[in-house]
């Protein structure tokens, strides 16, 4: 039986669909929460209580959720390209755990440096250092091995998670609020000021541009290290640059959302399945898809047990895990036909 031909979906319509999805989810997110407010009531920015609730309290948080989701998905996309494995994601590879250690240090030492500055810096340092260690281990003995990189990542993630927990347990009570840190560790979207939310847009733009520039190299890496080198790519330098970009994205995500897993794994995976493996096509899709997913997750997090909140990282893990298993099963069935 002849295998069916595959025609890749055209990109522009797909992006439009995703943009529409983002708009729909944002609409839902603005309306839902501790109290449901219909769009008719909050859309006019007329200073009424409902409008204030939506625009003052919800909108900044929604912006942060979108930003965190977009960063996680972009980071996952780059990691999957560099490690040549669809299971790679910042959480699994220790990058998020590294950011967690950095962020924990920043939270535990609020007197030395103001957390507003130290948190993203230390988170980035942690994410970057963790990724470099994983790369170094994965490369031991010369040639890369995708499997070895993943294993190294999982090991480093475990070590760093334990380190973070230890730091928090030993020093948590001294300078800051233990419960808040524990909650943050489980994932929670922080609320930015308007200036900070505007900053998100700029940072996201930079990240997207960087990811686009990496796209061809990531595709080439997928053909094999040697083929990539014969295509003129300095693979060591390229991988190092890619890791820096991915670490930055991870750091921002962790700084504003705590430790949230699965988004970096699932979104690139789904987009690749939908749009094909060429990375240039996937950057925009991952940003929109990751953003939409996390806005939705955060909406559930602050609505389901209102006025209480569920840590959003718990939600993504609870839902993400089974969803991913379902994905795997579906793909196996499709590949078998």
């Amino acid at each position: 039986m002849r295998p069916a031909p595959v025609v890749r979906r055209p990109l522009a319509p797909a992006l439009l669909v995703l943009a529409a999805l983002v708009a729909a989810v944002a609409l839902l997110a603005m309306s839902a929460g501790a109290r449901w407010v219909s769009p008719l009531q909050w859309l006019p920015m007329d200073g009424s209580i409902d409008a204030a609730l939506a625009w003052t309290w919800r909108a900044p948080r929604i912006a942060a959720a979108f930003f965190v989701g977009a960063c996680l998905a972009t980071s996952g996309l780059i990691f999957q390209g560099v490690f040549r494995n669809p299971l790679a994601e910042p959480y699994l590879l220790g990058s998020a755990a590294g950011a967690g250690v950095g962020a924990a240090l920043a939270l535990l030492l609020p007197d030395r440096v103001p957390p507003a500055l130290s948190l993203p810096l230390l988170a980035f340092a942690g994410a970057w250092a963790a990724s470099l260690v994983v790369l170094a281990i994965g490369r031991l003995g010369g040639a890369w091995s995708s499997a070895r990189l993943l294993l190294a990542g999982v090991a480093i993630a475990a070590i760093l998670s334990a380190l973070r927990s230890l730091l928090v347990m030993l020093f948590g009570d001294e300078s800051t609020n233990l419960r808040a840190i524990v909650s943050w560790q489980l994932g929670g979207i922080q609320t930015p000021s308007t200036a900070e939310a505007a900053g998100f847009a700029a940072i996201l733009l930079v990240l997207m541009l960087a990811a686009h520039r990496l796209a061809f190299g990531l595709d080439a890496l997928g053909l094999g290290d040697e083929v990539a080198r014969t295509m003129g790519i300095d693979t060591s330098r390229f991988v190092a640059a890619a890791i820096v970009v991915a670490a930055m994205a991870t750091a921002f995500a962790v700084a504003w959302g705590g430790l949230i897993g699965f988004v970096g794994l699932i979104v690139p995976h789904v987009m690749r399945w939908w749009l094909g493996p060429l990375h240039g096509r996937l950057v925009g899709a991952c940003v929109l898809g990751g953003g939409a997913l996390l806005v939705l997750a955060d909406t559930v997090a602050r609505t389901a047990i209102a006025p209480g909140e569920i840590p959003v990282g718990l939600l993504t893990a609870l839902v993400g895990g089974p969803f991913f298993i379902a994905l795997l099963l579906l793909r196996r069935a499709a590949a078998a036909t």
Binding site: L53, W57, D111, D173, P307, G308, E309
Partner: peptide, 27 residues
Amino acid sequence: DLRGSVQVSAEAIAARDPEVIVSLQQR
């Protein structure tokens, strides 16, 4: 109306608009 130690969302606090806010901080 809640029980024990809970985490609440900012908008929930806004919705209930307390007259006084007391914050317990280590430092």
